[in-house]
Amino acid sequence: MALDRLTGDNSIVFIRSEQLFDIARTNSLWYMAFGIACCAIEGLMSASGPRFDFDRMGVFFRNSPRQADVMIVAGTVNLKMAETVRRLYEQMPEPRWVVAMGACASTGGPFREYPNVVMGVDKVVPVDVYIPGCPPRPESVQYAFLELRKKIRAKTEDRLAARRQK
């Protein structure tokens, strides 16, 4: 939903402020440059590389959690790392979203038998989108961002619908 599609030439658009914010948010989902393991190479490096180029979707990396909207948990989270993941999540400004990338971040993956490994990052931070695969291809990560966009919009629309019913 881009604004120019809503507006013709010299027309006035009536839009709820929540929806306006959603347009801005969904088109600039900046993720935090925070790679833990193997998935970071696919989900963060190839993603910002020339072939997949997430930048054209407005998805770009920020080095500080204070400037980021999305945290891609790309890799195995162990007990030593879990504390840091939680701290980084709390440093991100709201609204914030978390993408659990790969088998390890979703469930513990091939390392889940090891007692040190957290069985999915959802034990530590709330997760919005899970991506299967070990590692997922960059296309999967792109798809995850599209799903995240839908989720953000749906939340506002649900809220507006509930308000209308009142």
Partner: peptide
């Protein structure tokens, strides 16, 4: 130690064909 996930220990429970999957990671 922030990425310690027990590759050496898990290898003791993998067949020799499957250790490669751990080494990849």
């Amino acid at each position: 130690g922030y990425l310690h996930r027990g590759i050496e220990k898990l290898a003791e429970h993998r067949r020799f064909n499957a250790i490669g999957t751990l080494m990849d990671r």
